[in-house]
Amino acid sequence: DYEVGESVTVMDGPFATLPATISEVNAEQQKLKVLVSIFGRETPVELTFGQVSKI
């Protein structure tokens, strides 16, 4: 299970290999909103559970 505030690594898509912090969890739809730090700015990205891995 994923929790808000948890650190994960993006495994898929254009942000693969980047660390991210979970900002929202939708367990019903198996989706997460995460904040990816790009060029010093936090960018919100919506991903599925399968696109991230716990650190």
Rank of each mutant, 00 (worst) to 15 (best):
A27Y: 15
F49S: 02
M11P: 02
Y2N: 02
F39T: 06
Q29H: 10
V25S: 03
A16Y: 06
S7R: 15
S37H: 13
D1L: 14
Y2K: 01
E3W: 13
Q30A: 08
S23V: 15
V52D: 01
Q51V: 03
I38K: 06
K54R: 11
L18E: 05
K33N: 06
S53P: 01
S37N: 12
T17S: 13
V10A: 02
F39K: 10
I55Y: 10
A27K: 13
A20N: 01
Y2F: 14
T21Y: 09
K33E: 05
G5T: 02
Q30I: 03
E46C: 10
F15L: 05
V52L: 03
D12K: 09
Q30P: 02
G50C: 09
V8W: 02
V36W: 00
M11A: 07
I22D: 00
R41C: 12
T9H: 08
S23R: 10
E24P: 00
A27V: 14
L47K: 02
A16V: 08
V45L: 12
L35E: 04
Q51G: 05
F49A: 03
A20M: 04
Q29D: 09
V36L: 10
F39R: 10
E24A: 10
F15E: 01
E6I: 06
E6R: 05
S7T: 14
E3H: 14
F39P: 05
E28G: 10
A27M: 13
G13C: 04
S23T: 15
Q51R: 04
Q51K: 04
S23H: 10
P19Q: 15
V25D: 01
F15S: 02
I55K: 11
Q30K: 13
F49T: 03
T17C: 14
K54H: 07
S7V: 15
R41W: 10
S23Q: 14
V4G: 02
T9G: 03
V34H: 00
G50K: 12
P14H: 06
N26Q: 08
S37G: 07
A20S: 04
N26Y: 14
A27C: 11
N26R: 07
G5F: 04
L32K: 00
T21Q: 08
P14D: 07
S7C: 13
Q29P: 03
N26C: 11
G40S: 04
E42T: 10
T9C: 12
K31D: 02
V34R: 00
T17M: 12
M11K: 09
L18K: 08
T48V: 07
G13I: 02
T17W: 12
T48G: 11
G5M: 03
E6T: 07
E24Q: 08
E24H: 10
R41S: 10
L32P: 00
P44D: 10
D12E: 13
L47S: 01
K33M: 12
V45S: 04
Q29R: 10
T43W: 15
V25M: 05
D1G: 13
G50Y: 10
D12Q: 12
L35K: 07
I22C: 03
L35G: 02
V34I: 06
D12W: 14
G13E: 02
P19F: 14
Q30N: 09
T21R: 12
V4S: 04
Y2T: 00
F39G: 12
A27I: 13
G50N: 12
Q30W: 08
F49L: 04
L47M: 07
G5P: 01
